[in-house]
């Protein structure tokens, strides 16, 4: 496989910005399988980076490495000045500053919406309950479902659940938000409500890395699009670049399938 893959592409953040995530020479294996190959990526504060690529290309694994849900074997990952090493303190520090939204929502079914959101602020940030609830309600309001606070996740629709998940991540006050295919498990008619929230978030200046196939979202708020295939970054460019003039054959083949 490696003999056919060309040299990796660097995905450096535009000069002049302040890099909040820096990934250098990242390599990761699942057993013998080489999932991530020589990833070089940096993201500036306030930037929205959209990662696309066929399934199995390693894009989810890449962003899961950023908050250490996956352990990397080679290379450096630095988030907001903290390098991810085997030090539990560093890992906790990074996780506190990065929010993550999952494809399958992963709300805690035994807790109410409000408890889902306030759990981490109270336990990790040591906020008072009233303060945590106030912030939680602020973000619930922001994602448009203030009336669902005392319900259980099982009583909400998929779109509502994903918006709760976003509010849950935001209440911790993260500096970076990671989205792992946030709309892939949703019914088509509710995808819009989740994307709206994400667009609003991007426009407020949140640093975001979004793994998604929603090219509309990429075009609207994406600063850069990264195309990955077979564990490598194949092509980097603005959304317009990808829509109008993709360079690589693999990119063209992929885009022709999803657009």
């Amino acid at each position: 496989m490696s003999n056919v893959t060309p040299a990796p592409v660097r995905a450096d953040a535009p000069a002049g910005g302040q890099a909040i995530i820096t990934i250098e020479g990242l390599n990761k294996w699942f057993g013998d399988f080489h999932v991530l190959r020589d990833i070089n990526l940096s993201v500036n504060q306030g930037e929205v980076v959209v990662v696309i690529g066929p399934s199995g290309s390693g894009k989810s694994t890449l962003i899961r490495c950023i908050n250490h849900l996956e352990e990397h074997q080679e290379g450096r990952i630095v988030v907001d000045g903290t390098e991810l090493t085997d030090d539990v303190r560093n890992i906790d520090l990074v996780r506190r500053e990065t929010g993550m939204v999952f494809q399958s929502f992963n709300l805690f079914p035994h807790l109410t919406v409000l408890e889902n959101i306030t759990l981490a602020p109270i336990r990790v940030r040591k906020w008072k309950r009233t303060q945590a609830e106030e912030r939680a309600r602020f973000f619930l309001d922001k994602v448009g479902i203030p009336e669902q606070a005392l319900k259980y996740p099982g009583q909400l629709s998929g779109g509502q659940q994903q918006r709760v998940a976003i509010a849950r991540a935001l209440t911790m006050g993260p500096k970076v938000m990671l989205f792992d295919e946030p709309t892939s498990a949703l019914d088509p008619e509710v995808i819009g409500e989740v994307l709206e929230v994400m667009v609003a978030l991007a426009q407020e200046g949140m640093t975001m890395i979004v793994v998604t196939h929603e090219m509309g979202f990429a075009r609207e708020v994406g600063d850069r699009v990264i195309f990955m295939d077979a564990g490598q970054i194949v092509e980097v460019g603005s959304p317009e670049h990808f829509f109008l003039a993709p360079r690589e054959a693999r990119t063209k083949a992929f885009l022709s399938k999803i657009l």
């Binding site: 908050n67 849900l69 906790d92 996780r95 506190r96 990065t98 929010g99 993550m100 999952f102 399958s104 992963n106 709300l107 805690f108 079914p109 035994h110 759990l119 981490a120 336990r123 990790v124 998940a165 849950r168 991540a169 911790m172």
Partner: peptide, 25 residues
């Protein structure tokens, strides 16, 4: 598995993740 990951991603420690999220379920 996602329950554990979501709890860890929020910054909860391994023991908090177990006692507050995994074990109750």
């Amino acid at each position: 598995k996602g329950q554990r990951e979501a709890a860890l991603a929020l910054g909860l420690s391994a023991s908090q993740t177990f006692s507050l999220v995994v074990f109750p379920q």
